[in-house]
Design a protein around this nucleic acid. Structure first.
Length: 389
DNA sequence: TATACGTGGCG
DNA sequence: TCGCCAAGTAT
């Protein structure tokens, strides 16, 4: 580690730059309110600042206090997070708010050991809140911090591995400015956003270039080392939009897993391994659907049969696909073919997780992006001949 | 420890 | 089009 004088000089160079060039205008930097800082840090997990700003302002208006958040209706909560992604974040946010109301009398705890016990708060966020809201000299190590210091100290450990974070925490615990820990942590992140960016960094403009070993040694291209992520697994899906007048059939997804609890038009995954035991034939939706035409309706009929059996909806007038699109998640990719059919009648006995919803009530629902894309296809299709869409 | 979990932007 | 990236956490 550096001698004490060098550490002091590093802190000064960084904080002088931060005072002059840091992003002091961000809405969650208006004050040191732990609630605001907490909400912002959760939103900022794996999410860009520019994306977060409008969500943050709206969220604080809807839920201005920990108490308001703890008591919020879950539908309203999810709607406020609509489009941000990683939706378990907002569920955990509310759970933590309820934890604070119950265990800490509604006052955000100021002890790192207590903070990290809150749902959805891990080592990074605990350090961020501790340092920014309570001025405690805690490390807040995120991707930016690992990138900056991997270059400064030429650390070649794989930053994709969870264990690597601990190396940087040890480092930052020593380096962090004891007088201004929150500003120190934010300064590193501001630096990592632009000057010390992942691609096309400009180290010659950096306030700490004299401290940057990789820059001095011409090894910038080697740091940070990050192992490759696996590419998303493609899945072939059929999106089934079933309409009866103003009503559309929506299905609520399971409470765990991808897009948990979200309402969507039914989405059927192609399953080549699934066999119809009675008929002794595979249920193969997609390749048949893809080949369907006015003269070859086998695939469409297969789909219609599946809809009747699985969704318990007797849909007539089954048309070929009205559109398609891809949606990439972090770990999988949906290639969705969208079908629009008119229901012969409203089925009385729907499965528990399905219901008919008027399209005029759609604005009250939180729709994940795949659902929004499906709805956009239907709207465009209908705008051609229906003014009301 | 490795994997699940969203979305949008950029080269 | 595609791969990578962004203020991570839960399990």
């Amino acid at each position: 580690m550096w001698p004490e004088e060098k550490i002091t000089a590093f802190r000064k160079a960084l904080l002088d730059w931060y005072d002059a060039e840091g992003r002091s205008h961000l809405p969650w930097r208006e004050n040191n309110d732990p609630y605001r800082i907490w909400v912002s840090e959760i939103m900022l997990q794996q999410t860009r600042v520019i994306t977060v700003i409008p969500y943050f302002n709206h969220f604080m208006m809807l839920f201005p206090s920990i108490k308001a958040l703890a008591e919020a209706d879950e539908e309203i909560l999810l709607k406020a997070w609509e489009g941000l992604g990683y939706y378990s974040r907002v569920r955990n946010l509310q759970k933590a708010a309820q934890q604070i109301m119950k265990e800490y009398d509604g006052v955000f705890p100021n002890d790192p050991a207590e903070i990290i016990k809150l749902k959805g708060i891990g080592p990074y966020t605990a350090g961020a809140i501790s340092s920014m809201a309570f001025n405690l000299p805690e490390p807040a190590v995120d991707g930016n911090v690992m990138r900056v210091f991997s270059r400064v100290f030429e650390i070649g450990e794989d930053i994709a591995k969870p264990a690597t974070r601990k190396i940087f925490e040890l480092l930052v615990r020593i380096l962090v400015d004891p007088e201004r820990p929150g500003d120190f942590n934010q300064a590193i992140m501001d630096l990592g956003t632009d000057i010390c960016a992942p691609s096309n960094p400009r180290p010659e403009e950096s306030p700490i270039k004299e401290f940057n070993a990789a820059y001095q040694n011409g090894t910038m291209h080697l740091y940070p080392f990050k192992s490759k992520a696996k590419r998303p697994v493609p899945k072939t899906m059929q999106g089934i939009v079933i309409q009866k007048g103003d009503q559309f059939l929506l299905e609520q997804r399971p409470q765990d897993g991808l897009l948990a609890n979200f309402w969507t038009f039914p989405i059927i995954e192609e399953d080549w391994g699934k066999w119809d035991k009675a008929k002794k034939e595979p249920i193969q939706l997609n390749f048949l659907v893809a080949e369907s035409s006015p003269t070859n309706r086998k695939g469409i009929e297969q789909l219609q049969k599946t809809v009747r059996e699985n969704l318990r909806v007797d849909a007539d007038d089954f048309q070929p696909a009205v559109g398609s699109f891809s949606h990439v998640f972090s770990h999988r990719k949906w290639n969705i073919t969208v079908h629009h059919v008119q229901a012969a009648k409203l089925t009385k006995e729907l499965p528990e997780n399905m219901k008919w919803v008027s399209r005029f009530d759609f604005p009250e629902y939180a729709f994940a992006v795949p659902q929004q894309k499906m709805w956009e296809i239907i709207r465009k299709q209908n705008r051609n001949f229906l003014q009301s869409f």
